[in-house]
Amino acid sequence: MNVIETKDVSKIYNPDTIPVYALNKVNLNFEKGEFTAIVGPSGSGKTTLLNVIGGLDDASNGSVMIDGSDILKLSGGKLIDFRLRHIGFVFQAYNLIPVLSAKENIEFIMLLQNWPTKKREDRTKEMLEAVGLKDKSGSKPSQLSGGQQQRVAVARALASKPRFVLADEPTANLDSKSAENLLDIMLKLNKEEHITFIFSTHDPRVIKRARRVITLEDGKVVSDIQQNTEQALARQ
């Protein structure tokens, strides 16, 4: 079953002067449990696509169906609530709330969702362990490395068990070792929790780990391939 379905989604900037097609009739389906990379050169529309799917930006045309309802038709307040309940976000940087510790950051969305205390604390512990930061639970973001911060962000995005996680260049600011490590954790959680991951990247080593790679150019989907990650890794 499709979790996300985009139909003829276009995003046009400056339609009246010099129109820029950030997205040009994008038709894509995403299924439950996918681990998908959106790739393409800078300016190809990766961020715009993730923002439109995540309800952070409207499309100029088309529809984005999530479980059969068009999120582009949701009003402001409902959209924020929808994001809170169903979508996990990881951004390139500045993901975490600086005044909260790693543990408090991971808890944050569950708190906004009013999870019962016991359930919330168990889940937080579980996620801290899953991203390998049990001993950093009380550290503030400023006391964590870039890689550790991104791992906390992934843990926070996943903690409340959203339907899917959108990550815009999550490894862009990381050295290759931290990037690999983050990918390992994302893959592990994708398998264990069956959560759909859609992330953008232009890092070849990250691309290799994806099971599906969608390539954008000038806002158009130019290729959409399934790849066997095991084989890809073996070839390395």
Binding site: G54, I80, D81, L84, R85, G88, F89, F91, I109
Partner: peptide
């Protein structure tokens, strides 16, 4: 970011 992740 707070508003993106669901703070209304």
């Amino acid at each position: 970011i707070l508003m993106a992740i669901g703070m209304n």
